[in-house]
Design a protein around this nucleic acid. Structure first.
Length: 421
DNA sequence: TCTGGGGTCCTAGGACCC
DNA sequence: TCTGGGGTCCTAGGACCC
């Protein structure tokens, strides 16, 4: 029988910030989203203050002040680096690991003689080597492992590891959980379930399957079966290649001027092109969008356009050119835009591509690749944006996203290394 | 001043083809 | 009275995840 473990870092971003600031050990810590917009991570103390996930930061400033909450802008360079340290420990210790997100990984523990003992060792080593606290849930399916993880977190007496397969009363786990807390049931479905009298995960697991399939599609049905112990979401050893890639940002101030939007779009196109080449892929189409703020009494405009490329490419100038054409279509005069983005669609592997009549000659393609490789090399070595395209915005534009409270890049930037006296 | 960024999958409906 | 049936592709919209 299959056995899944779910390793989840506790309050991951807040824990990362705390690592380098030991004096914050018992103070509440929150981390804000890009643009310092809303709360995306909270330490246990911050949760105890009643600060909800996704709370708009400006609404909670008084609480931050009153309780001396340590507030950080998000610092993805730091979190990404600590994440890979945690993941490499897991890879060393568990037979198979599926990295599921920046702070979570599934373990395939099928056939392991004493999985609980292994998980306790893993937990101890991650704590010792990285300082990041983790919880681990074990169960027969991924959705149950998620639920088991939640119990491991909530119940300190368990010591951070909970094995649902050893439980005398397996239904207690689901009876103790709201339906909306189940992995795969979001706010919309929760509301509809509530209207039908379904309160707990156990209620949901006991619904007629045909109703679930009809109202929640095959995805909802898979979730239900998973809660019943029937594994539908399988272990993925290697990450699937991306189907799309996106770079988008909110602006610190509203942008009306098309020339400034062109700069922003050009920067986003450059960035997403870097991601594309790092994945050794090419894009078949470029999508651009611009949008006005959602919650204000101004005319809304959400413009978007998709430009199909003549042939798949990873060449930044071609991506920029298409993106700017897309912007021409998406843009409407007379709006203050709050956000823009560039998405690459129809991704294909860069190697082994078919030649097409529409494509440039192979020598020209090769010349482009060499140029991009050189560019990426310089930017890797000297920092992103060291070399950039003329149209792309300089880093000092007033509308660049706010990051008023970012911590240093302790682990990924020489200049930010911690000084030991 | 004022709510992130980056993804995935499913479904329904229309266009088009044979 | 009475206008098929099946397949594919694309898109928009909706839902979810972290």
């Amino acid at each position: 029988m299959a056995l899944f473990g779910l390793v989840d870092c506790n309050n991951f971003y807040a824990s990362c910030e705390r690592l380098f600031r030991p004096e914050l050990k018992s103070r509440p810590v929150v981390v804000l989203s890009n643009n310092d917009g809303c709360v995306i991570a909270r330490s246990a103390e911050a949760k105890a203050l009643g600060i909800p996930m996704a709370a708009p930061a400006y609404q909670w400033e008084h609480v931050f002040r009153q309780h001396q909450v340590a507030v950080f802008s998000s610092n993805y360079a730091l979190y990404g680096d600590l994440s890979s340290r945690v993941m490499s420990i897991l890879a060393d210790m568990a037979p198979r690991v599926e990295v599921y997100s920046i702070d979570e990984a599934f373990l395939d523990l099928t056939g392991v003689a004493d999985p609980v003992a292994l998980c306790r060792e893993i937990r101890a080593r991650v704590t010792q080597w990285t300082g990041i606290p983790v919880s681990i849930g074990l169960a027969r399916t991924k959705a149950l492992a998620k639920a088991a993880n939640r119990r491991a977190k909530k119940n300190p007496a368990l010591g951070g590891v909970y094995d649902h397969t050893a439980e005398a009363d397996p239904e207690a786990l689901l009876a103790d959980m709201e339906a909306g807390e189940v992995w795969g049931i979001g706010p919309r479905h929760q509301k509809r379930l509530w209207a039908r009298g379904v309160r707990t995960a156990l209620d949901f697991a006991r619904l007629p399957r045909d109703w679930v399939k009809k109202e929640m599609s095959v995805v909802g049905l898979a979730t239900q079966l998973e809660l019943q112990g029937i594994s539908c979401v399988h272990f993925e050893r290697a990450p699937a290649p991306h189907r799309s890639l996106l770079c988008s940002r909110s602006f610190a101030t509203l942008v009306e001027d098309k020339a400034q939007l062109r700069e922003a779009v050009c920067s986003f196109a450059t960035r997403v092109g870097e991601k594309l080449r790092r994945e050794n892929a090419e894009a078949s189409a470029v999508q651009v969008f611009v949008s006005t703020p959602r919650h204000r009494d101004v005319p809304q405009h959400n413009g978007q356009a998709v430009i199909t490329l003549p042939a798949p490419t990873a060449h930044t100038p071609e991506i920029i050119e298409a993106a700017l054409r897309g912007l021409d279509q998406a843009y409407a005069e007379g709006h203050g835009y709050q956000k823009a983005g560039v998405m690459l669609l129809g991704l294909t592997p860069a190697t082994g591509r078919q030649n097409s009549l529409l494509d440039l000659p192979p020598e020209e393609r090769q010349r482009q690749r060499t140029l991009m490789a050189a560019l990426d090399g310089v930017n890797r070595r000297f920092g992103r944006g060291a070399l950039r395209f003329a149209l792309a915005s300089a880093p000092d534009r007033p509308w660049h996203m706010r990051q008023m409270r970012r911590s240093p890049r302790y682990t990924t930037s020489w200049a930010d290394l911690l000084k030991v006296r």
